[in-house]
Design a protein around this nucleic acid. Sequence first.
DNA 1: TTGAAATATGAACAAACATTCATATAATTG
DNA 2: CAATTATATGAATGTTTGTTCATATTTCAA
Lengths: 97, 97
Amino acid sequence: MSEIPNEKILTKMEELLNVASDYTRLKILYAIMDEDKSVSTIIEEVGASQSLVSHQLKVLKKANLVATHKEGTKVFYKLADEHVNSLLRVVQQHAEE
Amino acid sequence: MSEIPNEKILTKMEELLNVASDYTRLKILYAIMDEDKSVSTIIEEVGASQSLVSHQLKVLKKANLVATHKEGTKVFYKLADEHVNSLLRVVQQHAEE
DNA sequence: TTGAAATATGAACAAACATTCATATAATTG
DNA sequence: CAATTATATGAATGTTTGTTCATATTTCAA
């Protein structure tokens, strides 16, 4: 029997889903799925404005979906863990049918 | 290499995630995870108002996350397919760590 | 140190959304 | 039919949120 999870878990789930449920952020997540990339590269590949990408990267970071490291003036982003991958795969499969 | 999915797929993914990313709707989805239940039962188990549950059931139905059948005056809701289960499982696992 | 390149931040605004309250519709029973 | 139970709908509202524009910060090179 799958009971309804407690409030804390549900709120966390809501947060993760909320952060993932945006067109621009989804694109960003896919862009850095295989290898980490600099913000400028992400901007190119996603095709959104510098400001928008930066704002959304901040949202993703705050929710711990992505991690960063710096190299000179560049900042590289990558997926934080494997759960994000799994999530995207499940959702994509659903969307493709 | 995982390319960024096309616009149509991304929009569908965004929609699914959006619909799933709400506290009340998450509770509803869990309530009907194992067996279909009538609206009144869902209201009890979820602990939200009649109107709210009804509104959110409509959202879930429109997005094809749930399916219904009628018995007399009662309407029973169940999860539409296995993807919804998988999604909830993946997200819950992420939230529990 | 001046300039340029890369990234972040803040304000502003329209659009989307969750919830409530009141009311409507549908089915059943007496 | 009248009354009751179960569910749906619509309007109203306060809040959240995605996006843009303008500006700030950081790092490095000349």
